[in-house]
Simulated scan of single mutants.
Amino acid sequence: MTFIDESIFRIEPIVKHGWFLKGSKPSCPVNWSRGKECVFGALNFENGGKLISKQAKKINSKTFIEFTQLLMRDIGSFILVMDNAPWHTSRKAAGFLEEVRDCVEPLHLPPYSPELNPVEPHWKAVRSNLANRLFENTSELKKSLKKALDGVQLDINKQRYLTS
């Protein structure tokens, strides 16, 4: 069973915590850029539960299909558990999933239930690794994001996700 999810990481700083002098007025520098990086993530419990990720410029049906093809090369046959995002349910994606039905069996989570997807805690950990930093440009964000994605290791309770 392979769980899939997507997330967008913006160049804007993620302010999580900080120490400030009492009575001071904290400020956060920004660079006013609208840069972002989109990430596809998949978690397969049979492959040790390591997050498989791919950065992309956009999230759409085309990039979803490309990521699914990458998973097919890495994993082989699997059940693809996903939410009901428009790029998962589009005609293009549905047609692709029908074509590869012999090795990818799609399974949709109930609407508005991110707590059922074990990829979600990974996004939280990655955001925490990127917190309190100002990125000068998108290439700096991409490098830091790749490092954070490679370094995230969570001990996900398989039983909880497979029996809920």
Rank of each mutant, 00 (worst) to 15 (best):
F78G: 05
A148R: 07
M72R: 13
I11G: 04
V30W: 00
E120L: 03
V30R: 13
K58Y: 08
S128D: 10
L162D: 09
P29D: 08
I8R: 13
F20E: 06
E140Y: 01
I14G: 00
E136F: 05
D102Y: 11
E66W: 02
K57I: 10
K146C: 07
L109P: 11
K124H: 10
D74N: 12
G35V: 09
S77E: 14
C103M: 11
I8D: 06
N157P: 08
L141V: 04
I59M: 08
L80A: 11
L130E: 00
G76F: 02
P110R: 08
L70V: 00
P121L: 14
H108P: 04
S128H: 06
K147Q: 11
K16P: 00
F67N: 03
G48V: 06
P121V: 14
D83K: 06
T89C: 14
V104F: 15
N31E: 07
K62Y: 07
T89K: 15
E115W: 12
E115T: 04
F64V: 05
M1I: 05
F78Q: 07
N117W: 07
A42V: 08
L154F: 03
L43Y: 12
Q153F: 13
D83E: 06
Q55H: 08
L116V: 05
S7P: 03
F135Y: 09
E105H: 09
K147L: 07
S113Q: 09
V39E: 00
N157L: 07
F64N: 02
G49I: 08
Q153N: 13
K92Y: 11
I59T: 09
K124A: 13
H108S: 15
A42C: 08
H88E: 03
L97F: 03
T138C: 10
I75D: 04
V152G: 02
G18E: 11
R133D: 01
S61V: 09
N84V: 01
T89R: 15
V152D: 02
